[in-house]
Protein backbone atom coordinates (compact mmCIF):
# COMPACT_ATOMS: atom_id res chain seq x y z
CA UNK A 1 0.00 0.00 0.00
CA UNK A 2 1.03 3.60 -0.52
CA UNK A 3 2.50 4.84 2.75
CA UNK A 4 0.77 7.26 5.07
CA UNK A 5 1.32 8.80 8.49
CA UNK A 6 -0.43 7.22 11.43
CA UNK A 7 -1.61 8.74 14.71
CA UNK A 8 -2.77 6.96 17.87
CA UNK A 9 -4.59 9.68 19.84
CA UNK A 10 -5.65 9.06 23.44
CA UNK A 11 -8.64 11.44 23.50
CA UNK A 12 -11.28 12.85 21.17
CA UNK A 13 -9.58 16.25 21.32
CA UNK A 14 -6.24 14.75 20.29
CA UNK A 15 -8.00 12.82 17.52
CA UNK A 16 -9.60 15.99 16.16
CA UNK A 17 -6.26 17.79 16.27
CA UNK A 18 -4.41 14.91 14.52
CA UNK A 19 -7.10 14.91 11.85
CA UNK A 20 -6.82 18.68 11.35
CA UNK A 21 -3.03 18.52 11.04
CA UNK A 22 -3.04 15.43 8.83
CA UNK A 23 -3.55 16.82 5.32
CA UNK A 24 -5.92 14.42 3.55
CA UNK A 25 -6.80 12.55 6.77
CA UNK A 26 -9.12 9.67 7.58
CA UNK A 27 -10.25 8.14 10.87
CA UNK A 28 -9.80 4.40 11.17
CA UNK A 29 -11.94 2.20 13.44
CA UNK A 30 -12.01 -1.50 12.47
CA UNK A 31 -10.68 -0.61 9.03
CA UNK A 32 -12.73 -3.23 7.21
CA UNK A 33 -14.00 -0.76 4.66
CA UNK A 34 -11.16 1.77 4.74
CA UNK A 35 -8.24 -0.64 4.28
CA UNK A 36 -9.77 -2.37 1.21
CA UNK A 37 -10.50 1.11 -0.17
CA UNK A 38 -6.87 2.13 0.36
CA UNK A 39 -5.61 -1.10 -1.22
CA UNK A 40 -7.67 -0.45 -4.32
CA UNK A 41 -6.68 3.24 -4.32
CA UNK A 42 -10.23 4.47 -3.96
CA UNK A 43 -8.87 6.30 -0.91
CA UNK A 44 -5.36 7.74 -0.67
CA UNK A 45 -5.07 9.35 2.76
CA UNK A 46 -1.94 11.17 3.94
CA UNK A 47 -2.76 10.37 7.57
CA UNK A 48 -4.77 7.70 9.37
CA UNK A 49 -6.07 8.64 12.81
CA UNK A 50 -6.73 5.44 14.79
CA UNK A 51 -9.64 5.80 17.22
CA UNK A 52 -9.00 2.51 19.06
CA UNK A 53 -7.00 4.19 21.83
CA UNK A 54 -9.64 6.81 22.59
CA UNK A 55 -11.36 5.78 25.85
CA UNK A 56 -15.13 5.62 26.22
CA UNK A 57 -16.05 4.73 22.63
CA UNK A 58 -17.00 1.09 23.28
CA UNK A 59 -19.72 -0.63 25.22
CA UNK A 60 -23.47 -0.95 25.61
CA UNK A 61 -25.69 0.87 28.11
CA UNK A 62 -29.44 1.21 28.55
CA UNK A 63 -31.02 4.49 29.59
CA UNK A 64 -34.81 4.31 29.80
CA UNK A 65 -36.19 3.50 26.36
CA UNK A 66 -32.82 4.07 24.65
CA UNK A 67 -30.08 1.51 24.08
CA UNK A 68 -26.72 3.24 23.58
CA UNK A 69 -23.88 1.50 21.77
CA UNK A 70 -20.38 3.00 21.57
CA UNK A 71 -19.03 3.72 18.10
CA UNK A 72 -16.02 1.39 18.47
CA UNK A 73 -18.17 -1.56 19.59
CA UNK A 74 -17.61 -4.50 17.25
CA UNK A 75 -20.35 -6.38 15.41
CA UNK A 76 -19.34 -9.51 17.37
CA UNK A 77 -20.04 -7.70 20.64
CA UNK A 78 -23.43 -6.41 19.48
CA UNK A 79 -24.33 -9.91 18.26
CA UNK A 80 -23.56 -11.51 21.63
CA UNK A 81 -24.07 -8.75 24.25
CA UNK A 82 -26.70 -9.69 26.85
CA UNK A 83 -28.09 -6.15 27.11
CA UNK A 84 -28.62 -5.96 23.34
CA UNK A 85 -30.17 -9.44 23.31
CA UNK A 86 -32.69 -8.53 25.99
CA UNK A 87 -33.55 -5.01 24.77
CA UNK A 88 -33.43 -5.35 20.96
CA UNK A 89 -32.85 -8.98 19.89
CA UNK A 90 -33.53 -7.95 16.29
CA UNK A 91 -30.41 -5.76 16.41
CA UNK A 92 -28.28 -8.61 17.77
CA UNK A 93 -29.61 -10.83 14.98
CA UNK A 94 -28.74 -8.20 12.38
CA UNK A 95 -25.18 -7.84 13.70
CA UNK A 96 -24.74 -11.61 13.43
CA UNK A 97 -25.48 -11.40 9.68
CA UNK A 98 -22.73 -8.88 8.90
CA UNK A 99 -19.77 -10.32 6.96
CA UNK A 100 -18.32 -13.41 8.64
CA UNK A 101 -16.98 -14.18 12.14
CA UNK A 102 -13.55 -12.63 11.49
CA UNK A 103 -15.08 -9.49 10.00
CA UNK A 104 -17.50 -9.21 12.94
CA UNK A 105 -14.55 -9.40 15.35
CA UNK A 106 -13.07 -6.30 13.77
CA UNK A 107 -15.77 -4.17 12.12
CA UNK A 108 -17.45 -1.48 14.22
CA UNK A 109 -20.81 0.27 14.45
CA UNK A 110 -19.22 3.71 14.16
CA UNK A 111 -17.23 2.75 11.10
CA UNK A 112 -20.34 1.54 9.30
CA UNK A 113 -22.36 4.60 10.28
CA UNK A 114 -19.66 7.07 9.23
CA UNK A 115 -19.12 5.29 5.91
CA UNK A 116 -22.81 4.81 4.97
CA UNK A 117 -22.32 2.15 2.33
CA UNK A 118 -25.65 1.86 0.48
CA UNK A 119 -25.65 -1.94 1.03
CA UNK A 120 -24.53 -1.95 4.69
CA UNK A 121 -26.87 -3.47 7.27
CA UNK A 122 -26.74 -1.05 10.20
CA UNK A 123 -28.27 1.95 8.38
CA UNK A 124 -31.57 0.03 8.01
CA UNK A 125 -31.55 -0.64 11.77
CA UNK A 126 -30.81 3.00 12.59
CA UNK A 127 -33.71 4.16 10.42
CA UNK A 128 -36.19 1.61 11.77
CA UNK A 129 -35.14 2.07 15.40
CA UNK A 130 -35.40 5.87 15.19
CA UNK A 131 -31.76 6.15 16.21
CA UNK A 132 -29.67 9.12 17.29
CA UNK A 133 -26.06 9.43 16.10
CA UNK A 134 -24.02 11.25 18.74
CA UNK A 135 -20.74 12.86 17.77
CA UNK A 136 -18.00 14.97 19.34
CA UNK A 137 -19.93 18.02 18.13
CA UNK A 138 -23.61 17.23 18.68
CA UNK A 139 -26.20 14.72 17.59
CA UNK A 140 -28.16 13.77 14.47
CA UNK A 141 -31.48 11.95 14.04
CA UNK A 142 -31.09 8.96 11.72
CA UNK A 143 -33.78 10.35 9.40
CA UNK A 144 -31.62 13.41 8.69
CA UNK A 145 -28.24 11.73 9.12
CA UNK A 146 -28.18 9.40 6.10
CA UNK A 147 -28.00 11.48 2.95
CA UNK A 148 -27.57 8.96 0.14
CA UNK A 149 -24.69 6.85 -1.09
CA UNK A 150 -21.62 7.28 1.19
CA UNK A 151 -23.01 10.64 2.30
CA UNK A 152 -23.95 11.65 5.84
CA UNK A 153 -24.64 14.74 7.96
CA UNK A 154 -21.12 14.51 9.43
CA UNK A 155 -18.88 17.51 8.89
CA UNK A 156 -15.27 17.00 7.86
CA UNK A 157 -13.46 15.65 10.93
CA UNK A 158 -16.60 15.05 12.99
CA UNK A 159 -16.31 11.84 15.06
CA UNK A 160 -19.20 9.48 15.82
CA UNK A 161 -19.02 8.66 19.54
CA UNK A 162 -22.11 6.49 20.08
CA UNK A 163 -25.49 5.60 18.65
CA UNK A 164 -28.76 5.49 20.60
CA UNK A 165 -31.46 3.06 19.44
CA UNK A 166 -35.06 3.46 20.63
CA UNK A 167 -36.13 0.15 22.20
CA UNK A 168 -39.13 -1.24 20.27
CA UNK A 169 -41.81 -3.72 21.31
CA UNK A 170 -40.46 -6.07 18.67
CA UNK A 171 -38.06 -5.95 15.73
CA UNK A 172 -36.32 -8.12 13.15
CA UNK A 173 -34.04 -7.84 10.14
CA UNK A 174 -34.24 -9.97 7.02
CA UNK A 175 -31.52 -9.84 4.40
CA UNK A 176 -30.97 -11.36 1.01
CA UNK A 177 -27.23 -11.24 0.82
CA UNK A 178 -24.75 -11.39 -1.96
CA UNK A 179 -23.08 -14.77 -1.45
CA UNK A 180 -19.57 -13.44 -2.06
CA UNK A 181 -19.51 -10.03 -0.39
CA UNK A 182 -22.27 -10.78 2.16
CA UNK A 183 -23.53 -7.25 1.71
CA UNK A 184 -27.30 -6.85 1.37
CA UNK A 185 -28.80 -7.14 -2.10
CA UNK A 186 -31.87 -6.07 -0.15
CA UNK A 187 -32.17 -5.84 3.64
CA UNK A 188 -35.33 -4.85 5.53
CA UNK A 189 -35.42 -3.91 9.22
CA UNK A 190 -38.86 -3.76 10.82
CA UNK A 191 -39.46 -2.20 14.26
CA UNK A 192 -42.85 -2.15 15.99
CA UNK A 193 -43.37 0.60 18.56
CA UNK A 194 -46.49 1.27 20.65
CA UNK A 195 -47.60 4.09 18.36
CA UNK A 196 -46.28 3.05 14.94
CA UNK A 197 -44.19 0.66 12.88
CA UNK A 198 -40.96 1.85 11.23
CA UNK A 199 -39.29 0.10 8.29
CA UNK A 200 -35.74 0.73 7.02
CA UNK A 201 -34.56 -0.64 3.67
CA UNK A 202 -30.90 -1.04 2.66
CA UNK A 203 -29.22 -2.39 -0.46
CA UNK A 204 -32.20 -1.72 -2.70
CA UNK A 205 -31.66 1.94 -3.51
CA UNK A 206 -28.80 4.43 -3.80
CA UNK A 207 -29.03 4.92 -0.03
CA UNK A 208 -30.97 3.60 2.95
CA UNK A 209 -34.60 4.76 3.09
CA UNK A 210 -37.79 4.38 5.12
CA UNK A 211 -40.58 2.54 3.35
CA UNK A 212 -43.68 4.66 3.99
CA UNK A 213 -46.25 2.27 2.42
CA UNK A 214 -44.99 -0.65 4.49
CA UNK A 215 -45.00 1.44 7.66
CA UNK A 216 -48.64 2.53 7.09
CA UNK A 217 -49.84 -0.98 6.28
CA UNK A 218 -48.07 -2.58 9.24
CA UNK A 219 -49.09 0.15 11.69
CA UNK A 220 -52.72 -0.67 10.76
CA UNK A 221 -52.18 -4.45 10.82
CA UNK A 222 -48.87 -6.00 11.91
CA UNK A 223 -49.10 -9.27 10.04
CA UNK A 224 -47.41 -11.21 7.27
CA UNK A 225 -50.60 -11.03 5.18
CA UNK A 226 -50.59 -7.22 5.44
CA UNK A 227 -46.91 -7.17 4.48
CA UNK A 228 -47.62 -9.36 1.44
CA UNK A 229 -49.97 -6.70 0.01
CA UNK A 230 -47.38 -3.91 0.12
CA UNK A 231 -45.75 -2.89 -3.16
CA UNK A 232 -42.42 -1.10 -3.66
CA UNK A 233 -41.96 0.90 -6.83
CA UNK A 234 -38.76 -0.06 -8.71
CA UNK A 235 -38.42 3.49 -10.08
CA UNK A 236 -35.64 4.69 -7.75
CA UNK A 237 -34.02 1.32 -7.03
CA UNK A 238 -30.61 0.05 -8.12
CA UNK A 239 -29.86 -2.02 -11.18
CA UNK A 240 -26.39 -3.58 -11.22
CA UNK A 241 -24.63 -6.87 -11.96
CA UNK A 242 -26.25 -8.47 -8.92
CA UNK A 243 -29.91 -7.64 -9.49
CA UNK A 244 -32.27 -5.42 -11.47
CA UNK A 245 -34.55 -2.80 -9.92
CA UNK A 246 -37.72 -4.85 -10.45
CA UNK A 247 -36.15 -7.90 -8.86
CA UNK A 248 -35.01 -5.81 -5.89
CA UNK A 249 -38.54 -4.39 -5.53
CA UNK A 250 -39.98 -7.91 -5.41
CA UNK A 251 -37.25 -9.05 -3.04
CA UNK A 252 -38.03 -6.18 -0.66
CA UNK A 253 -41.56 -7.52 -0.17
CA UNK A 254 -40.21 -11.02 0.50
CA UNK A 255 -37.73 -9.63 3.06
CA UNK A 256 -40.51 -7.53 4.62
CA UNK A 257 -42.66 -10.63 5.09
CA UNK A 258 -39.73 -12.55 6.61
CA UNK A 259 -38.90 -9.71 9.01
CA UNK A 260 -42.54 -9.33 10.11
CA UNK A 261 -42.81 -13.08 10.61
CA UNK A 262 -39.68 -13.08 12.80
CA UNK A 263 -40.89 -10.06 14.80
CA UNK A 264 -44.40 -11.45 15.36
Amino acid sequence: MRDFAYARPASLAEAASAFGDGGEAAFIAGGHTLLPAIKSRLRMPDTLVDLSGVPGLSGVTRDGDMLWIGAMTTHATVATNALVASAIPGLAGMANLIGDPQVRNRGTLGGVVANNDPAADYPAALMALDAVVETDRGSHRADAYFQGMFSTALDDGEIVSRVGFRVPLASAYAKFRNPASRYAVVGVFVARFADAVRVGVTGAGPGVFRWAEAEAALTADFSVSAAAKVVLSPDDLNTDIHAGAEYRAALAVVMLKQAVSQAS
Binding site: H32, L35, P36, K39, Q102
Partner: peptide, 23 residues
Protein backbone atom coordinates in the same frame (compact mmCIF):
# COMPACT_ATOMS: atom_id res chain seq x y z
CA UNK B 1 -6.11 -10.20 -0.05
CA UNK B 2 -9.69 -8.82 0.05
CA UNK B 3 -10.91 -10.18 3.44
CA UNK B 4 -12.98 -12.95 1.88
CA UNK B 5 -11.04 -16.23 2.06
CA UNK B 6 -9.69 -16.51 5.61
CA UNK B 7 -6.32 -18.04 4.62
CA UNK B 8 -4.67 -15.25 6.64
CA UNK B 9 -6.67 -15.80 9.85
CA UNK B 10 -4.69 -15.30 13.04
CA UNK B 11 -5.78 -15.00 16.67
CA UNK B 12 -5.45 -11.57 18.29
CA UNK B 13 -6.08 -11.73 22.04
CA UNK B 14 -8.00 -14.93 21.27
CA UNK B 15 -10.25 -13.49 18.54
CA UNK B 16 -9.76 -14.60 14.94
CA UNK B 17 -9.23 -11.86 12.41
CA UNK B 18 -8.03 -11.49 8.86
CA UNK B 19 -4.40 -10.39 8.88
CA UNK B 20 -4.78 -8.96 5.35
CA UNK B 21 -7.23 -6.36 6.64
CA UNK B 22 -5.52 -4.98 9.70
CA UNK B 23 -2.45 -2.77 10.00
Amino acid sequence: DTSQCGACNVLVDGAALKACTVL
